[in-house]
Write a protein that binds this DNA or RNA. Structure first.
Lengths: 155, 155
DNA sequence: ATAAAAATCACCCTAAAGTATGAAAGGTAA
DNA sequence: TTACCTTTCATACTTTAGGGTGATTTTTAT
């Protein structure tokens, strides 16, 4: 069964050829018996074999494929994946809350804005930031941000 | 001339067909004069027209176009290679000196330190920074640094 | 040559940032 | 329980940052 399925195209071609030969024989008989003109017979043969040729060419040759390669550029920003450098964080002794304050600082928020966001007083934020600067051994928030980014403590 | 070049394929086909008809006529004459067998004549016609059919099919069919879109991923490396976003810089209207001040700001320097580094007065740096904030539409230096980094104006 | 833009500086004032010190509440580990 | 850390908040003070205004010099472009 598998053999038949695999070679079904070849078998079909064989059957078609056989039928074609029968057709030709029938045309020849008609030509001989009824004494029709030679031209009609020749014309029929020409048409049939031209068709055969076209059919053979279309079905037995592999289709011509013109491959058009279009390169589409996709820009990927792989800065999204941020991995917190926890050992460094532990080494500096920065607490969770302090890190939070540091993060909001790096986003450009003022102490007052950070206080509002974390629902604490301005003084609390000042204390936190002072401790962070002390622990990180920096003098200003801008320095803290710079250093923290270099150390992968903040994104 | 242009007409000939454009339709050269059609003209070629016409000439080929004419030659083919001549060949057939010649074969017919040979068949009648020398009383050769009908089978050879028919065979020749069959072969010629099969070939014609194959040739026609191969040359007149349009190739199938297969479009392959290859997506090429391009990673932007923010860490190593920094490319200054000059169009954005021009759009914001930030001058060379202002950019310098902005850069030193991002490194965590105070206005006084920037003034010392650039050999100008503190007031000059204040003017520059104020202009930068105005042009960048921010309120604080930390915001300016954040935005500038996002816009690839500073590394 | 002249106008526009950039860079420089000064003065005054307010807002924000940062320092110092003290203190109280809550959680955690020895 | 004690000692320690974290988080919270306050007050007082100093320093830095930032806004507004005006002015001069230098550079650049038309």
């Amino acid at each position: 069964m598998n053999f038949i399925i695999k070679n079904r195209l070849t078998i079909l071609y064989g059957i078609s050829l056989a039928l074609l030969l029968f057709l030709l024989r029938w045309l020849e008989l008609k030509f001989i018996i009824f004494e029709h003109s030679l031209e009609i017979y020749l014309g029929a043969i020409a048409i049939i074999f031209t068709s055969l040729g076209i059919w053979l060419a279309l079905n037995l040759t592999k289709p011509k494929i013109k491959t058009l390669i279009i390169e589409k550029e996709i820009y990927i920003n792989h800065e999204t994946g941020f991995i917190l450098n926890e050992p460094e964080l532990a080494r500096l002794g920065i607490s969770k809350r302090e890190l939070e304050v540091l993060q909001l600082m790096s986003e450009g928020l003022s102490n007052q804005e950070i206080a509002g966001q974390l629902f604490v007083s301005l003084n609390t934020i000042k204390t936190h930031s002072s401790r962070v600067f002390e622990k990180m051994d920096v003098k200003r928030r801008t320095q803290a941000i710079e250093k923290a980014k270099k150390l992968s403590i903040i994104p």
